[in-house]
Amino acid sequence: MKKEFFSTQTPLGETLSLYKNFWEGPELSETLAIVSGLHGDRLNGLMAASRLSRFLGDIAQGREPDFKITGNIQIFPVVNLPALSEGNAAWSYDNLDADRAFPGLEEGDLTETLCHAVLQQTAQSDYGIILQTAEPHYTDAPHIKMISANLKSLARNLDLRVTREIAEFPALTLQLIKQWHALGMASFILSAGTPGVVDPSQSDILFESVLNFMLVTGFLSHTHRKGHKRELDFYPAKNECTLLTKHSGMFLPKSKVGNWLNVDQTVGEVVDLYSGEVLETVTAREAGFLVTLRVYPLVHEQEPVAVLLTRKNKRRFWPFS
């Protein structure tokens, strides 16, 4: 069921209305909140949320007779609609990063007020999932991000092998997942792909991940399909290895996200912008899973171009850890 949860007049005089889709399960059911579109250019998550909404609507209308909704599910397909309308990460009028504006304000800039509304709408949920892509100029291999290692058992329900602990940093408290965590919600971020690009294969991965989660945790039931718990490769934040450039120039990737790289394996090259001469070859300092890679070519000195998740003290979670 589509329901308006936020409406206001923008500084430009236009009316902005935001909607969520909501399905009720039996009385006393737990609640799952799914949020995408915190940034206007994170399109894979938005497309996955839209597909989930259509699928759940089909179940509610009896067009998927083998499925049944057995919990409360609310989906917020797009939070930052002004930014989406412009095709930007943030709305140009206030230029606020929506995922650095929580808990928001009841009265404030537009982005702050819509963040406040989303948090209020989701605060009573038991579980939260944020669908997104990599940061601007980068691409992500499909993976799970979470704040607490205590959620490893639950993360198995998401059916993605690679799980990454979110490192603490000052601005984390302004992110939705940290606000959820403080409220006691079991919350995750699912990331896949590149900002500004719709990749159906990546959206499908996000869709199937959330679908499996709903089946295993009891938000959906199926006459035959039960969902499954997957073995995890869990990487603590301290195991991340960020590769930086030594020169300015054009970065040309020579590897792909989702691959395991050995020590000294080539990640990419930095070439001179004018001559095309190779200035440096960026190689893996440690063996690791290539989770993030820069796709925008222009780089400066000490620019991050890749993130590896390394095996030092890595824990494989199956079935207990």
Rank of each mutant, 00 (worst) to 15 (best):
Q202D: 03
S203M: 00
F234N: 05
I177S: 04
W23F: 14
R156F: 03
K312I: 07
E303K: 06
D109H: 05
W91P: 02
S201K: 04
L81V: 04
L16K: 07
W91D: 00
A155W: 02
L43F: 08
G249P: 13
E14Q: 12
T31S: 09
F219N: 01
T242K: 11
L105Y: 14
R285K: 15
T283P: 13
W318Q: 09
R225K: 14
K246A: 04
V197R: 00
F76D: 01
A192H: 00
L131Y: 00
C241H: 11
K2I: 04
L84C: 01
G45T: 00
G37M: 11
T70W: 12
A284N: 07
A171M: 13
S53Q: 06
V197S: 02
R316Q: 12
G218Q: 14
F55R: 03
A117T: 05
P77C: 03
E280C: 11
S153I: 08
Y127H: 11
Q121R: 15
S153Q: 09
T283R: 15
L206I: 02
R311G: 09
A237M: 09
H116E: 11
K178P: 07
Y138E: 02
T139Y: 00
L309C: 08
N95W: 07
A98I: 02
H137I: 02
H137G: 02
R42T: 05
S50L: 10
G193A: 04
V216T: 13
E269T: 08
S50Q: 15
L56M: 06
F320K: 07
D233V: 08
L119W: 14
E64W: 02
V271D: 09
E4Q: 08
Y127D: 06
S201P: 04
T310C: 11
Q202F: 01
I147N: 05
F234D: 06
Q202T: 03
D109G: 03
